[in-house]
Computed example of a mutant assay.
Amino acid sequence: MSVLEMVLATAVVLLTAALGGCLLALRRSRAQVVRLEATQQRTAPRSPKALRVAGRAARVVAQSAAHVREHGVTSLVTSSIEDLTRWAAESRAAIAEVTAPDGTVTVLFSDIEGSTELNVRLGDRAWVGLLAEHDKLARAVIARRRGRVVKSQGDGFMVVFRHPADALRAGWEIHRGLASARGRLRSTPISVRIGVHRGVVVARDGDFFGRNVALAARVAAQAGGGETLVSDELREALLDSTEFVFSEPREATLKGFAGPQTLWLVDEVVDDHEEDARSRRPRLSRPRRG
């Protein structure tokens, strides 16, 4: 039995039990309404409004009970099962868009170093303007590197990528873009902390959850301004690549995770702009000699 089938089977059992309780409550409510109606008829025969209210309540209870008797419990749980199935399908589709062939998703977290102090120093209006410039730059880089912004967290982002290399290049380009920016970002320089990890995740309602998401956030918290830190798992995925240079490993204790974790600082990323430019140039055929 697959995980989805187990989830649906469990949901059916729970919903059936809950609906059984609802049916029992409906029967009791109907009996109470009937007794109330009889009491009102004896004690307040001159109150037609009360009788009408009681009558409507009795009819609602009776109609609900009749629907269950006619169509059975299955008719009531069908819509819920359909909702669960649709939710599972949507979750699989959301994950599939950013899942690597090995079934993992690369998760990147970023935030601005010293954002609270900077906000206090600049004031809200100037801070919002600076934040808008930061967001514009970061989103452009993320889109170019085929990332998907899951959510903005005030002064940072949670982003998912299909390939680890795209996430590392995005982080590198965000650092470089902020360092060379103009306008507000030049008059008020800022730096971001970035953490990247990869693993299996759970998706729901456009968000991503799971221990690997939490670990990526913890890795980002260990980074300093202008740094991109990656987990040992992510570095292992890029060991065969010559595009990335990592510095000496760091040992860190991450909240909620047992034992020390090995983290790696991205020290250099080989620029691929020139290589891309060469690949886009048309190849010219040599003239034939007559």
Results as ranks from 00 to 15, higher is better:
Arg250His: 15
Ala94Lys: 04
Gly210Tyr: 05
Phe161Val: 05
Ala237Asp: 11
Val61Asn: 05
Gly290Lys: 09
Leu137Tyr: 08
Val202Pro: 02
Ala50Met: 10
Ser241Glu: 13
Ala11Arg: 12
Val200Trp: 02
Val73Glu: 11
Gly114Pro: 05
Val150Gln: 05
Ala11Gly: 09
Gly290Asp: 09
Trp264Lys: 01
Arg139Val: 05
Phe257Cys: 00
Ala38Val: 10
Ala88His: 13
Val33Glu: 05
Glu113Thr: 06
Arg56Val: 08
Pro101Ala: 14
Leu215Lys: 02
Thr106His: 02
Leu178His: 01
Arg280His: 09
Val120Arg: 14
Arg193Asp: 00
Ala138Asn: 01
Arg121Leu: 13
Phe109Tyr: 10
Asp102Ala: 09
Gly290Pro: 15
Glu113Asp: 07
Ile112Phe: 03
Glu117Ser: 13
Ser75Asn: 11
Phe257Gly: 02
Gln40Cys: 14
Ile81Asp: 07
Ser79Ala: 11
Gly259Val: 04
Glu275Trp: 12
Ala165Ser: 09
Leu131Phe: 01
Glu233Phe: 01
Gly177Phe: 04
Trp127Tyr: 15
Val202Ala: 13
Pro48Tyr: 12
Glu227Gln: 15
Asp276Glu: 14
Ala89Asp: 14
Arg235Asp: 03
Ala179Thr: 09
Leu178Gln: 09
His197Trp: 02
Val159Ala: 05
Arg193Ile: 00
Val105Ile: 09
Gly156Lys: 03
Arg204Asn: 14
Cys22Val: 15
Pro48Met: 13
Val13Pro: 06
Arg139Asn: 07
Ala165Asp: 10
Ile81Asn: 05
Arg211Asp: 00
Leu254Lys: 01
Leu229Ser: 00
Arg176Ser: 14
Glu37Trp: 12
Glu268Leu: 10
Gly154Arg: 09
Val33Pro: 02
Ala66Tyr: 06
Pro282Leu: 14
Phe257Met: 01
Arg280Val: 05
Ala252Cys: 13
Asp272Asn: 07
Ala62Ile: 05
Leu263Asn: 02
Trp172Asn: 07
Leu263Thr: 02
Ile194Glu: 03
Arg69His: 11
Met1Arg: 04
Asp276Val: 06
Arg169Val: 03
Val159Ile: 15
Gly195Thr: 03
Gly114Phe: 07
Trp87Thr: 08
